[in-house]
Amino acid sequence: MATVSKNTAKRPRSILPGFGLSLGFTVTYLGLVVLIPLTMVFVKTSGLGFAGIWKAVSTDRVLAAFRLTFGLSALAGAINCVCGFLVAWVLVRYRFPGRRFLDAVVDLPFAMPTAVAGIALTALYAPNGWFGQYLTPLGIKVAFAPLGILLALTFIGLPFVVRTIQPVLEDLEPAQEEAAASLGATRGQTFWRVVFPPLIPALITGSTLSFARAIGEYGSVVFIAGNMPGKTEIVPLLIITKLEQYDFAGATALAALMLVISFLLLLITNSLQRWSSRRHSK
């Protein structure tokens, strides 16, 4: 470490031009478009005072929305952890016709506009839809129920898990597995004791990314959710509802809370990714 920092200190200043211009433009643009607008949320919220914030977020309707959003997002993250692992494993480990096509298909939830995904899922799972018509007689209500929200949140989060696990799985050394097998481990033992442990950081990172995306998701959820206050109303929708009812204080307080949570999740995923790449490079 010591030699590295000495080298950086000794290195002459860059002779490349354009430092002032590029950094100046970067910081100004970032400030005007992102930082100042985001700060507004906190400025407006602090104007409410503690009592005002508490009043805005402690209603039954808000609490129900938070429970629903965070509960279902966590569940979607967990489902994606399992399904995303399966998909990544199959794509990396096995060779079969159509593998590259399937690999590209994983990115569909990133590529499709959220509103389009929302109406497609709703049409499929509505009581008279392609899947809904078979599920409704069984007493399973997907669209316009919490299950539908879970479905949409799982849909948009899947690529995060697959794309986080894939590179780690690709870099695993087959030599370790061969050693375990030659020392008499069964395939199951090899998997759980040799293959799986190095993947844990990537699995947690991917699921957290999926969770973080899910709590803020709006477009793919509003169509399928049914949007019943207290039952199938998610936090982002509640923010819009409050805004449309000119309850700016309520909307801003909720937005500030969501922002704080998003920033914390960003910090967590960043350190998880560092942990993951450290484990990975060992």
Partner: peptide, 9 residues
């Protein structure tokens, strides 16, 4: 990291 709804707000 920001919810699209908050980005508009």
């Amino acid at each position: 990291a920001v919810s699209p709804v908050v980005s508009g707000l």
